[in-house]
Design a protein around this nucleic acid. Structure first.
Lengths: 202, 202
DNA sequence: GGAAGAAGTGAACCACCATTCAGAGCTTCC
DNA sequence: GGAAGCTCTGAATGGTGGTTCACTTCTTCC
């Protein structure tokens, strides 16, 4: 057997795969799923179109991987904040802020994750992603109710509403140019979210 | 000039066009924009694929027409309710109810209007559609603030949040099967919306 | 150095639809 | 009836873009 992958070769291949995923993520964030062709991704990664198929069996599989990575990061970050220090209302406030700030910092990606037209496989991932977001918010709302900080309510609906509301506000291209600074937008957004959960006005 | 369209012939053609739009709307509501082919629409309307092009210059033009009709109806209905009788909070409550009830009665269409993957031309229409929804809600919120029924807030953001929140709750396929009756869902949804706008708890 | 076998290439292939168009079938009016 | 001009048809066309594959290039190990 005159050829066997050395550890360094394996690492090189893994790195190439990572690079491919990273480049694909950039392309998607820039032009959206619909405009992302295999050729464009390959070009961006500096490899031939055919080489993409050394790492992924299909374009859809690559798209799903891109989505999972990006969505996973967001869920993880939000989860850490919502599970962190402070009472449930404080954590909810910080969670909204983090969610919103990250989305505003990379609008293209946020749009791709939350709303951009995508093929069926990505659509299914998106549903799962939203479900996880909802579960995180719902848990904090539940804690807030248990602690007597929030009024009785259907936590699942509040959680879904928060996801939808923030997405709608952030994703709409008209969101920023309408004369608000980012900070004003964040202030108004968190105020709205707290009202939505029923937290007493500050 | 041995041929000239008679009034009845003109009516026949208009009816055929209406029928085509109606059938296309059904197909879209059933399978979504992405799965809607010209052939499928033509079959559903009982005509040949080529005949579609007697009424519309392109598939995109037909799709836009389908979207405009359906979206226009929704905006009109919501607008009438929000401009109707009662104080702003009452009208807002009824508006949410109507929005939600209509969406629940025709989920496929609601999904197509609010969220389903679609080509660029339809995406642009959808932005406009959401903008109109937002404007309607924002006006009622503004009136509520003026009447002292709602606290000071960024009405545009509240309006966007309402649109996003309701859409998220209604569109997610997991919305209903989770053990709620439609009426419970509507009750929880309006309660959430009123909190979101800052209306005092009832 | 050289054999064995993997990764990388990119032009060719192919499936999928929107769109077209030459001809068939109607409708109108003399 | 028949000429003129329309609507309707559906197989053929064409563009797009994911996928394949014969070939080249690189890596490993004797």
């Amino acid at each position: 057997m005159p050829y066997r992958k050395t550890p360094s070769e394996i690492r090189r291949l893994e790195a190439a795969r990572e690079h491919l995923v990273a480049c694909a993520t950039s392309v998607v964030a820039e032009v959206g799923w619909a405009q992302t062709s295999v050729t464009a991704v390959a070009d961006s990664a500096g490899i031939a179109a055919g080489s993409v198929y050394q790492h992924f069996p299909s374009k859809a599989a690559l798209a799903v991987e891109v989505f999972r990575r990006a969505a996973g990061r967001e869920v993880e970050v939000l989860g850490e904040v919502l599970d962190g220090e402070g009472d449930p209302v404080e954590r909810l406030t910080r969670g909204i802020e983090v969610f919103a700030r990250r989305a505003l910092e990379n609008r293209g990606l946020a749009y791709a994750l939350l709303a951009a037209p995508a093929e069926a496989a990505v659509g299914a991932e998106r549903l799962e992603f939203r479900r996880r977001y909802r579960a995180l918010f719902a848990e904090v709302v539940r804690q807030g109710m248990a602690a007597g900080l929030l009024p009785a309510q259907n936590g699942e609906i509040t959680a879904a509403a928060l996801t939808g509301a923030i997405g709608e506000v952030l994703v709409d291209p008209l969101g920023t140019p309408s004369g608000h600074t980012t900070d004003e937008l964040l202030t108004d957004l968190t105020a709205m979210a707290l009202r939505c959960a029923g937290a007493p006005a500050v």
